[in-house]
Amino acid sequence: MAVNMAVSRIKREFKEVLKSDEIAQCSIKLELANDNFTELRGEIAGPPDTPYEKGTFLLEIHVPETYPFNPPKVKFITKIWHPNISSVTGAICLDILKDNWAAAMTLRTVLLSLQALLAAAEPDDPQDAVVASQFKDNYEMFCKTAKHWTNVYAKGPHKFPDFDAKVQRLRDMGVNDFDARAALSRHNWDINLATNDIF
């Protein structure tokens, strides 16, 4: 019963998503990644008045056989600089995706919750400790870094030429693009500290 139920529920949720114009306004999208309704692709737009504004973030959704009694497994495909999301793996720290899951929640409410998480980070309960400490100690730097990541990875509009220049300098030393950007982000864009970290 469990497998059938997961599939039939996902089908119904799909209908719900495409009927809901509220979803269209919030710019949330859901599509299939395989034909048996177990792998899906979600997309959320960065909420306004946050560093993620105007970015588009892709999510990988895996629906377990025991869905909806157990939560879907969701992670970010798009790289993002956020205290509750791993900057390396995209793993998400959100209670409803773990212990606080309830069977009446749907993929739609999960996507809306993730959008809300982008707007309201919880640095005291971090997934990425480095990002969380930057969020608490140097909020301005956090915002700039998050905007920069949104620009580079999520098609955001805010360019930071000085950040790009620093990344380019590390790349000239043979470091790959993501490692260079991550190291610089971790060290508040201090190129010496980042270089020491890498080599």
């Binding site: 719900e16 720290c93 209670d95 995706l97 749907t106 409410t109 309960d125």
Partner: peptide, 26 residues
């Protein structure tokens, strides 16, 4: 790797989505 984020979405439409949305379909 702890987890207690309380950003849940209040969803007044959960129970009657299909009902309300039928009205607004083009």
């Amino acid at each position: 790797m702890s987890s207690s984020q309380t950003t849940t979405v209040n969803d007044p439409h959960l129970d009657n989505t299909t009902t309300t949305n039928n009205d607004t379909l083009p």
